[in-house]
Design a protein around this nucleic acid. Structure first.
Lengths: 248, 248
DNA sequence: CGTAAGAATGCATTTTTTTGCAATAATATA
DNA sequence: TATATTATTGCAAAAAAATGCATTCTTACG
């Protein structure tokens, strides 16, 4: 059995049964547990499943247990504060999902009057807490990992919109490869949002800068503003400033 | 059972029942109480639950904020348990919003394979916790009070669906006036859902029975099943049984 | 065709994690 | 307070993961 074939089999199995054991797979496919472990490691790196001691769990099963704590929370709060200043009364704002976006939602001033459009359920619930913000949810199937709606319906709805501003929670940003991500469905939604907006803002914690994932969302040129927790004059940001991005 | 899987199970259990005992879990999962205790400690470290002597409490129950907010919680849990038995594998299920529906979402068995369609953001997030349930959100403007999507877009999407089952969280039910409610926009959505479903189930706590609100959602005839926390032979329910409703 | 570079795999060894047990301490409850 | 239940701690056995290395299999290329 080829490596790719084996990994596809493992993935199928884990999605069907919600969990797999190294020992079972080893017997079933007739390779050593080491190989299975290496496969699981790889699949986990690609974000296809969740590795656990002794085996792995399907991503949808794992999301039951709502991903522990927010990583790098303080930095994200800082980014949210900066980003919030970009929103003016009366604006139509598109946002993706992710923990940084949630922090942005929390950081919005109480007196802001604006319309927020999103496919992220947790973000929508946060926006609802603000008395003067109108919330519009994009409907479609909900992706378990990201808790945002994805699919053709969602994308066609997004294309009908012209927003003033789009906030993109960023997984990886690179001066050469632009904005990249690893979930195909989520990428499609992000693409549509970026196309439907006049201005695009990338919210990026410093450690994601100069990294790349497998699927491209957009070129660097498509991004207007980059918000990080770093001061504007940080070494890391200079290449992006040179390429014409506004950095906050 | 893998460690991670076990912890997910514990978390599910504690969120469903509001509390768990080390001794129960130990028997149920078949590991020592020491292991359970260590799991609870870990989950507590991650802030997913509150550890207590002899077991643990759900975070939402412990923080008076959330617990006190849900009125008549125990009755609603009882209703949810009964209602959950109506759902079979492969079904398409439409649901409204409301606290009883949230309890239903929590009470769904882990191994249920079904598709849930809703405009309620909190309900959708609950459904997501079930690995084998597909969640579809109806998009539109979100109503601040009810946290469900309302409006023409939502209604036209609902009309395109034909579901097997529709669960309606009920505000007022009366043998003469049928199902009534007091929020015009929410009523429009409920109407559409009822029309789009083969079977309609009303989830109603006893104190809402024989009460009415200002706007009619549907006649009693449109409802197939009535689920309350009362035993089937309760005096209060007899008029409804006479009128042909199935009572659980 | 043949050979060299690189990837994939299994095996042995070391390290880490998980788990149950026992002894002791802390805590609840009658 | 006394007693039973629950927690904590240290420890050891078992299981699993990581690591380095040798062997086999693929692939690329002269």
């Amino acid at each position: 059995m080829l490596k790719t074939e084996r990994q596809a089999f493992i993935l199928h199995k884990v999605n069907l049964h919600n969990r797999v054991l190294c020992s079972d797979l080893s017997l079933e496919i007739n390779v050593s547990e080491d190989t299975i472990r290496r496969d699981l490691q790889e699949l986990s790196d690609y974000g296809k499943l969740i590795k656990a001691h002794g085996g792995a769990l399907s991503k949808s099963f794992y999301s039951t247990f709502n991903a522990s704590k927010v990583y790098s929370l303080e930095n994200k709060k800082c980014i949210a504060q900066k980003a919030a200043t970009l929103i003016k009364d009366g604006m139509f704002v598109l946002t993706t999902g992710g923990t940084t976006i949630i922090e942005l939602a929390k950081a919005l001033p109480q007196n802001l009057h604006a319309t927020f459009i999103t496919g992220s359920l947790p973000a929508a619930l946060e926006y609802l807490h603000h008395p003067n913000i109108e919330v519009i949810v994009i409907g479609d199937k909900v992706s378990k990992n990201s808790q945002i709606t994805v699919g053709g319906e969602a994308i066609s709805k997004i294309k009908q919109i012209k927003a003033d501003l789009c906030f993109v929670g960023t997984n990886a940003l690179d001066a050469e490869y632009g904005l990249t991500d690893n979930d195909w469905e989520v990428v499609q939604v992000k693409k549509a949002m970026i196309e439907s907006s006049v201005k695009v803002v990338s919210l990026t914690i410093a450690e994601k800068i100069n990294t790349r994932q497998r699927i491209q969302v957009c070129d660097l040129q498509a991004i207007d503003v980059l918000v990080t927790e770093l001061p504007t004059d940080a070494e890391l940001l200079q290449p992006y400033i040179k390429k014409g991005l506004i950095v906050l």
